[in-house]
Each structure stands twice: as C-alpha cells, then as structure tokens.
Nucleic acid binder design. Structure first.
Length: 504
RNA sequence: CGCGGGGUGGAGAAGUCUGGCAUCUCGCUUGGCUCAUAACCAAGAGAUCGUGGGUUCAAAUCCCACCCCCGCAACCA
C-alpha cells in the first residue's frame, strides 16, 4: 500500500507562522499514521516561488537578485520544518529545474489535447488574489477580499478550456463522496462549478517572473496553473517516471479553505485534460484566530511556531492544535487554553498515568512482563481493539479529534483498571497477581504510545524508552497487535510533562 | 441578493450531512483511594440546544422566516 500526502506549497514572502505549521502538522500526523500502519508513504511539502508576491517582497527588502532571495527564504522554511520535526520525504520548489520540466511537459499534453487556445483577455486583475475578477465580484469597485482596486488588463492570453470538464467534474464529485471534505466545502464547490467555473486564462504577458510557456516565450504561465503541478513534479513527473508511477494519484491533499476552488475545480480539470488520475481526496482545514483576533502581523499576534515549540515542546503544540480544533473547522488559538490542556490532559492525564504505572512496575521487581492466562488480559485486549477501531476510523474519516479521544478513553480505561485492581495492595499480598496486573497495565501503556505516535512522536518514543522498547521506525502494523512487543527493563525516569513554569 | 464561520449547563467545545434517552473538558458539590505529577476513581448539581413557525411517532439535527455575534485593506493557512 502506498500513501501520498501533500501540504499546499507556501508563498515565501515571509516566515512561516502558526497557520502554516498547523497545516503541515496535520499532514505530518497523517503521514506518520500511515507509516505506522506499514504504508509506503510519500509526504510532500514545498514552496511556491513563481508568485509576483514573492518578487514584490524581494524588491521591498532590497534584493535585486530575486532567485537569491527565494533561495534564502526557501531555506528558512525548510529549516523551520526540520526544527519542527516534520517528516516530509521531499521538498519541492517551483523554481527548480525538475518542476519546470514537469510543468512544460504537462502544458504540452494539455495543449496537444486541444485544451489551450489563444484569446484576448480583458479583465480586472487583482494581484492579491492572483486572479481575474468579474464585475459582479466587486464591492464598490474593489476586490472584496483585498479591498484593492483591480487593474484593468487587456492582453493576448492563452486559455485553458476548463468549461469542457465541468460536467465530468460534477459527476466525479457526485460519485466520490469522499473527494472533497468536509461536506460543507463540497457543497460550496458544487455551486461554484455550476455557476462560475469557466475557461481560465493561464498565461500572463506582462509578468517577467515565472515559467515561460513552451509554445510562446513571451508569456509566463499563470502562477496557480504552475503551482498545482508541484503535486506531480514533487514525485518525479517529468524527471522520474518510475517514482511518479509509484505514488500518483495523491491520496490526500491538505489545503486551506481559501484555496479549495483551485484544488477542487481547476486542478482536477487540469488532470482530466492531461489524462492523469484525480487525487483521491482533498481536505480543507479551517482557519483560526489568535486569542480571538485574526492572524495579523500589524497586530503583532502572528505566532512563530518555532518559538512556540521552544517554550512548550513540539509535541505539546501539535497535540494542542489537533485536539483543540476539530479538523476542518475554524478555531481559536489561545495560549491559556494550551496551558489548560497541558495541565489537565497531558500532565494529569497521560503523564500521571505513565508515572503511576511505571512506579508500580519498578516496585514489583519483575524484569520481564508477559501475558497471563487470566480473564483480565482478554478484557483489556478487547477494550483496546475497540478503541483502535475508533482511532483508525478517525484517520480514515479525517476526524482526528476522534482519534485523540480514543487515546483519552484508553487512558481513562487504564486508570479505572488500576483503581479496580489496586496493584499497590497486591504488591504487599500477592506478588504474582501484582505482576500480572502490572503487565497488563504496561501493555496498555505500550498501546497508548503507538496510538499517540502520529500526534506526539517524541512523547511516544519517551514512553517506549521507559518500557525498554526501541523507537518507532515505521512498519508498526505488527506492533499494534496486542502483546506484539516484549516489555522489559522498565524504568520510570523523569516525568513526561513537568509542571509549566509560571509565566512572568 | 458578495463570501464564509458561529449562537448547545458557569467557561470552552463535540454532536447537525445520516432525526432516536443531550456528550466531553474545565470549574463546582459529595464520597472513595493513597500507586501516581495535590495526581486517580465514583456519585451529584447545573441546559427553554439564539427566536418563531413547519414536517415527523420523534428535531440541537430536516424545511421556512427572523434575530444576534465573528472574519473578509495590507501581511495572511
């Protein structure tokens, strides 16, 4: 089984902020889950470098050598993802030669298909949107999104015959109910395709930065047409057909809710034209506010994910973002709520459970913990199997907060089990039963570490270390079996989630 | 007819597509426990599910109307 997942490629006119990190963490969590399940995973992210915005940013910052600026910025993004422990398999930049080759190849295919034609375009172009607007889109003559007066542009452009694929797209969406998620977005897209999806100008005459049209080098390819193709060129399209064949089609595109039209209408239409398979699923995550206010640099509330992780730890931030905001919805990022969740769910929940089990296990002085032929063993295995179903379902249905809930249920179940069996009392009276009971508890902890791994990889490793187990290197499908690994040399070590230092 | 999100115990949320005893976390009350990070377990109080209609045996959920809140200059997922 292969699994190919992508994030959007990001504009690099500034540093990554918490919103970018969120989308990337989400994708990374899926990638880790599928690796754990033994899939052949390819996880791609990258940077969108052919946008006019980048060029403007470079100029503003005084760089005359645009490519040099892009190299620096892209490097900064790659460093950020590395520091945040993102496990992308590759990183695609749209100014790379391999991308350019793929785009040219793709363009030729679409051209040969007869889906490119030359026309005169007269329209209102908003550089904020990187798109032409209709008269009816405007509010008081301004772009409704950017409150900016669009420029009247009249030029000879090449058009992509998107309208030709309208019916096929609608049919595909109808037949594949999972294609666009969440459902509310699907409805939005269906309306959009029915009412507004028309042939689109895919070249620009007066822009100097970008990929030249293979059939007319006086024109540059429209940035979205170019950018979307990263999902192909990132896995070999145009430069390694074997690799490409191994991973295409994408199993999941993670995108922001603002760019679903491009991903759910234009992109599939492009693929249909090129005769390529469509991605299996596009999932639109929501946006969040920061302490109730929108993300905004002028308000100074843009959060640097690297800094945030330096304070709380990567796992805690990942956990919080995925726990606090149901995937697909909008949410609010609040540091106070992060601290609340840290205290109640991580320190007092997971951390305390780990701590009490390990302490008890150390006290009983056993060196190896194995399965015992007692009813409790079966009961625990059954409980975990049920929870695993919920956990897996959360990933399959893109409702990750339900997977996290399954982890909490597992810990709650185990905490209740401790209370019921009172191992601290058993240790005094009946060491054999105590070892059996603790053995079950340690297995529950091991199971928890696996459930936790996609969300909190470092914490999972820390728990496993305490159980005398190796780190998770993928291919953990066998490990998920009850009692799949032998637990030995248990050691408590320091607490997983120490109390937070009081904030000054 | 611009686009979108939301209104559910004191706080924050899930549930709404696919109707079926109103769920979770925090806080509060009471009891238990002493292995554990003053942690854990149990019981309990607390909700006209924004409003008004409609459909239905049954509505937070479906339909209609309405009220209110939030985001949409630039940066920006």
């Amino acid at each position: 089984m292969k699994y190919y997942i992508t994030t959007p490629i990001y504009y690099i006119n500034d540093k990554p902020h918490i919103g970018h990190a969120y989308a990337t963490f989400v994708a990374d969590t899926f990638a880790r889950y599928h690796r754990l399940k033994g899939a052949d995973v390819f996880f791609l992210t990258g940077t969108d470098e052919n946008s006019t915005k980048n060029v403007e940013a470079a100029r503003e910052k005084g760089y005359s050598d645009i490519q040099h600026y892009l190299d620096m910025q892209s490097a900064e993004w790659q460093t950020a993802w590395k520091e945040l422990g993102i496990t992308n398999n590759d990183f695609i930049r749209t100014t790379e030669e391999r991308h350019k080759q793929g785009v040219e190849q793709f363009f030729r295919l679409v051209h040969e298909k007869g889906d490119i034609y030359k026309g005169t375009y007269q329209g209102l172009y908003c550089t904020g949107c990187e798109a032409f607007l209709r008269e009816s889109d405007l509010a008081d003559g301004l772009c409704p999104f950017h409150k900016k007066k669009p420029e009247l542009i009249e030029e000879q452009n090449y058009f992509f015959r998107a309208s030709k694929y309208r019916a096929a797209l609608l049919e595909h969406i109808e037949k594949n109910s999972d294609f666009i998620q969440p459902v509310s977005r699907r409805n939005e897209i269906v309306n959009y395709i029915k009412d507004h999806f028309e042939d689109i100008s895919i070249s620009r005459e007066k822009i100097e930065w970008g990929i030249r049209l293979p059939i007319d080098d006086s024109q540059v390819i429209y940035v979205w047409f170019d950018a979307l193709i990263n999902y192909l060129t990132g896995i070999g399209y145009g430069w390694d057909e074997k690799l490409f064949a191994r991973y295409w089609p994408a199993d999941l595109h993670i995108v922001g809710k603002d760019i679903i039209k491009f991903h759910c209408a234009l992109w599939p239409a492009m693929l249909l034209s090129a005769g390529l398979q469509l991605p299996r699923r596009v999932f639109a995550h929501g946006f969040f506010t920061i302490e109730g206010q929108k993300v905004s640099k002028s308000l100074g509330n843009a959060i640097d994910p690297v800094q945030l992780c330096a304070i709380y730890g990567i796992d805690v931030v990942r956990y919080f973002l995925l726990r606090e905001i149901p995937l697909g919805g909008d949410g609010d990022f609040s540091e106070l709520r992060l601290q609340d969740r840290y205290e109640s769910e991580l320190a007092k929940g997971l951390g305390n459970f780990t701590s009490r089990v390990l302490t008890l296990a150390e006290k009983c002085e056993a060196t190896v913990f194995e399965a015992a032929a007692i009813p409790a063993e079966q009961e625990a295995a059954r409980a975990v199997a049920d929870l695993r179903y919920a956990w897996e379902n959360g990933f399959e249905q893109c409702v990750l907060h339900e997977s996290l809930a399954a982890i909490h249920d597992l810990i709650a179940w185990a905490d209740r089990y401790i209370d019921k069996t009172k191992p601290w009392a058993l240790l005094k009276e009946d060491n054999k039963t105590a070892v059996q009971t603790l053995s079950i508890l340690l297995e529950l902890l091991r199971q928890a570490s696996l459930f936790l791994y996609p969300f909190m990889p470092h914490t999972a490793a820390a728990i496993r270390e305490r159980l005398g187990l190796s780190g998770i290197a993928g291919d953990g499908v066998a490990w998920l079996q009850w009692r799949a690994e032998r637990i030995h040399s248990v050691s408590k070590k320091e607490n997983l989630f120490p109390p937070l230092a009081p904030k000054p």
